[in-house]
């Protein structure tokens, strides 16, 4: 099975290929990725299922699946795939695509965590863990989770009480803006340049 370049952007697999240089059609469903996946017992779609659904272009189900948000990026699948399919990178790309299309929302807790984390960086350039925990709790609604942890952390000198702000904060904000703009541009441009290494050996 191969995806002709001209038709590529029309399918989700084509979009993945354009963004990552990886070709989902090269997966031959050996299942080695899923055999080593630490989250396979918790997800309805294991990594080889994700690749199969890309081959069938089951866009809607893939992008709205909770499973893509449960991937830990442990890279075991990628390390073991005999075909250099790089499922971990493909799943990253699917999460990004799902977010951009507003097609799906990750599980609330995980979404809340990513949002809180990135907010901290935008605010001070570095992660302020106390701020992260508070902000995560507000966003996730998990107000009482780990409420007992903070005193233990403080007692051990493991939590800073105030964020440290970097000098180049303006620069960090510009980087966020530029990357957000770049992403929305590349989502809307279907004729964007193909990455080098389309056989999947090279991935950025």
């Amino acid at each position: 099975m191969s995806i002709p370049e001209s038709a590529a952007p029309a399918t989700l697999a084509g979009e993945v290929r354009r963004k990552t240089g990886l070709n989902p059609a090269t997966c031959y469903q050996c299942g080695k990725c899923s055999a080593g996946c630490p989250m396979a017992v918790e997800t309805s779609l294991r990594p080889h299922d994700v690749l199969r659904m890309l081959q069938f272009d089951d866009r809607e189900q893939l992008l709205s699946s909770e499973s893509i948000w449960l991937c830990l990026t442990c890279e075991t699948c990628t390390a073991r795939c005999p075909n250099s399919c790089d499922p971990a990178r493909i799943i990253d790309c699917l999460r990004e695509t799902a977010l951009n299309e507003g097609a799906a929302q990750p599980p609330r807790n995980i979404r809340a965590f990513h949002n809180a984390f990135l907010k901290q960086i935008q605010r001070s350039g570095r992660l302020f863990e106390m701020g992260l925990i508070m902000s995560y709790k507000m966003r996730s609604g998990a107000l009482f989770a780990d409420v007992m942890a903070a005193p233990g952390m403080l007692g051990r000198g493991k939590l800073a009480l105030a964020p440290s702000r970097i000098q180049g904060l303006e620069e960090i904000r510009r980087i966020f803006d530029a990357c957000t703009r770049h992403e929305s541009d590349s989502t809307s441009t279907t004729t964007a340049q193909q990455n080098p290494g389309t056989e999947g050996a090279e991935n950025a």
Binding site: K19, T73, D92, C93, R95, E96, L99, F113, H114, F117, L118, I121, I175, F176, A178, C179, T180, H182, E183, A204
Partner: peptide
């Protein structure tokens, strides 16, 4: 959180 939501970032 950055690579899972925006590759370039």
């Amino acid at each position: 959180s950055a690579h899972a939501t925006n590759h370039l970032l």
